[in-house]
Design a protein around this nucleic acid. Structure first.
Lengths: 209, 209
DNA sequence: TCTCCTATATACTCGTCGGTATATTGATTA
DNA sequence: TAATCAATATACCGACGAGTATATAGGAGA
């Protein structure tokens, strides 16, 4: 049993050092994603990112190989949030429509997160062919998740017999949009925005007779 | 009365020369907008644009003062298409919902045009502060047009009493999306895509009882 | 203690690209 | 015909920014 050690030792164990390293990597990514979102990828230099953290550019290269890698990690984090949203909500109880509603809500919330925004603000054209292919594959998986849910809903009668493919595009398009306009200091909370959008998409505009 | 002149003269009149000039400007803009859409603004050099037309960079500077000006003209063309879509459809007969439907359809179609796409692919961050302000003002005007139409529809009972602001955002978001993914050589025509999206947005997903 | 690895910095290279200075040609006009 | 203007090119400048070569300092392990 390890002795309790009140005064923290300045000597770090292997795990502590690895955790430190991971923390620094994360800090770089957070700083980078914010600047990418605010000014655009090409308009953000790694010198800027480094300066915002009070470090120098080679330090960034030490933790993340090159500029594209930084972007890819940011986008990947966002895509993982999106996948997680789709997967957990899909596993919930309820009919297709209820589960879809839950996924859409989570999706919208992710789009108001720094990493989520980054997904929608990053065009394929910023990535190398390999990076872009990976990016597309992961987005496609999310799209398929949503389509599956729509199909479930149509099968159980909770969703009208719509065109699944176009519906998934339309829903995703609408929910991606906050990633471009939402400002975190606006009057509405992300949760309110998500609810309002989902209601409109689920219910449509024409009055129920 | 001017004599009919069978053989076209190599000497151009003032109007002809002005028309020539205008045509060349347009050609530059069309070439530029395509490359901006395909590769992104920052990744497209004016040397590339010039080369694609078989001319040299200073010729572009002769017709359009600088690179931002090229982008602004492209975006402005797209915004004008959007405004025109909103204004003409608004003037049509029918209740609020019918007119909104018509505007949404036209809006979606513009988003599958080169200049329309450019609007949605161009972030504020690419423009100078003045350019961005102009851009935002024109987008706001279009948003207000759509909101007015939704309000009309609510007033005449053809649209359910939704949150006008959020609804306008949601609709615009969904319809902007084709500007990012639609490929002109896809299996569906722009017209089919526009119809499908509008139906989904107007009707919602839950089955009508 | 000597060596090696990690973290970090300074100072550099080099390619790209927006923008310009300047020359040329040919048509328009006085 | 001389002067001017429009249209275009070649060749250049200067800035910026990705990425690297190299040095240093200090902890880790033998």
């Amino acid at each position: 049993m390890p002795l309790p050690n009140a005064a923290p030792s300045p000597f770090r164990s292997r795990e502590e050092r690895e955790r430190d390293r991971e923390e620094k990597r994360e800090a770089v990514l957070r700083a980078a994603v914010r600047m990418f979102n605010a000014r655009g990828f090409h308009a953000t230099s790694l010198d800027d990112v480094a300066a915002s953290l009070g470090i120098s550019k080679p330090t960034i290269y030490h933790y993340l190989g090159n500029k594209e890698q930084v972007l890819i990690e940011c986008v990947t984090r966002g895509l993982e949030l999106l996948s997680a949203a789709a997967d957990t909500a899909r596993a919930q109880p309820g009919d297709g429509l209820a589960r879809l509603r839950s996924v859409l809500r989570s999706y919208a919330l992710v789009m108001m997160d720094d990493f989520g925004r980054c997904v929608v603000r990053t065009g394929d054209e910023f990535l190398s062919p390999e990076g872009a292919a990976l990016f597309r594959a992961r987005k496609r998986a999310i799209d398929l998740s949503i389509r599956a849910l729509i199909e479930d809903g149509i099968a159980d009668g909770s969703i009208a017999p719509v065109d699944v493919r176009m519906t998934a595009f339309t829903l995703a398009g609408a929910l991606n949009w906050p990633g471009r306009w939402h400002a975190p200091d606006g009057p509405l909370t992300p949760s309110e925005i998500a609810d309002a959008m989902v209601d409109i998409l689920i219910g449509g505009l024409a009055p129920r007779t």
